[in-house]
Design a protein around this nucleic acid. Structure first.
Lengths: 229, 229
DNA sequence: TTTGCATGAGGTGTTGACACTTTGCTTGCG
DNA sequence: CGCAAGCAAAGTGTCAACACCTCATGCAAA
């Protein structure tokens, strides 16, 4: 009954965007990050495939991508397991971040447009108000922290950096945050450091931007190391 | 006729180590890096599967891993292509290296054992002799350069760094080297810089090690930028 | 001649089934 | 009673076939 040249847009079925494997990957990534699939739990391909109503082939491709993101580990003939998060690995990731985001800040100081920097300033102002009003809401702060770092990385305009941090590492980080229930009390100090970084960007000072960002990430790491021992 | 408890080791059939997808991945990775599959060339799944004598399912899993390594790009319903290498991307990769290997050197200055540092010194001595004798053989030098950097990264003892650099980025780098036919004339200077780094490691000076490594990578990048314009 | 649509071939996305490996349990022997 | 060999069930690795999409070729109409 549908006109052959017309496209049906049914809002109740939210456009099946992308391939089936893509959607599976997104769903599983979210499930793992949110902790719905516990750390170290075994992944049974037949069961998962049945629960999601797809075939094992598609599922296996999605799992392969998850493996590339370091969210699952697979051993030949033994199957896949959700990664086990250790304090050591978290430290290692923060060392990575110190190097990568430091470089991102350095590049951003030259590559970001004035408009982007202004938008970043607006975001920070908003964060400041949130801190004033609801000091208990550490969750939003954490999300805001990631937003801030996200924009710096985007501002570097370095595609390698962007993909590496935004499509792999940040998901891992969110997973740690959710599962360790991390809600640090340095939100005020972090907010100040963010403002220092904004100043460095406004001054178009790459050296200073990198220095501040590295110090910022390093402080977070030290704070973690203390909390984890 | 074979003893049930004995394992047959037939040298003519070089031990089918790992899964079929693993071997396919290795073979394709090599083929792409060596340039046997030209940049930007389309990958026809049926044809490749037939040429390697495997099914499309296994091949697709291997391709998915190659995509994670940034060696191929895939668009839904359009298929996979070998990546196109651009000068801009190469620059971006060197910016990544500056940050990552700088951090690796910093960590290595504290984490490497004395024995590892001594072995590194021996390797450098060997490189020095090669430079004296056969100055035309830039190929071995390049391989040697990668060996050197490889050991530093291993020495950082940071698993995230090691996997990221040694299992993904260095393959991309080798691809650029092979396909751009890069044989720089800074091998003597690079050799000197390697020796400075060794000194910093021997002194157990993380700050200095990072500084020297970053300067080293930055010099390579500048040299490239000049050669590519 | 040019534009537009239909049609076919090739290729990708997805599926269900088969073969081999691992694992836990059972069974028989020391 | 303990232990090793073997057996069965579940799970992974691999394959061949089906469904849908894309692109190119050719035909028809303006």
């Amino acid at each position: 009954m549908t006109e052959p040249g017309l496209i049906e847009l049914d809002p109740s079925v939210p456009s099946p965007v992308g391939t089936l494997t893509d959607r599976l990957f997104d769903a599983l990534q979210r499930a793992i990050v949110e902790g719905e699939m516990p750390q170290g739990s075994k992944i049974s391909e037949p069961e998962l495939a049945r629960r999601h109503g797809v075939s094992r082939g598609s599922l296996r491709e999605a799992i392969a991508r998850l493996e590339a993101c370091k969210l699952v580990e697979r051993k030949p003939n033994l199957g896949a397991r959700v990664v086990e998060l250790s304090a050591e690995q978290l430290i290692e990731i923060f060392q990575l971040r110190e190097a990568l985001e430091g470089m991102a800040a350095r590049l951003a100081a030259e590559a970001m447009s004035d408009a982007e920097i202004d938008a970043l300033g607006a975001l920070l102002e908003q964060h400041g108000q949130q801190i004033e009003q609801e000091q208990g809401q550490a969750y939003f702060q954490k999300q805001g922290d990631l937003d801030f770092h996200f924009r710096i990385v985007q501002g570097s305009k370095n595609r390698q950096l962007i993909e590496l941090l935004c499509e792999d590492l940040y998901h891992l980080l969110r997973m740690y945050r959710v599962q360790f229930g991390m809600r640090s009390k340095r939100s005020r100090q972090a907010f100040e450091e963010h403002q220092y970084l904004l100043s460095a960007l406004r001054s178009r000072d790459p050296e200073m931007a990198e220095l501040v960002m590295r110090q910022h990430v390093r402080s977070s790491r030290r704070n973690l190391e203390q909390a984890l021992t």
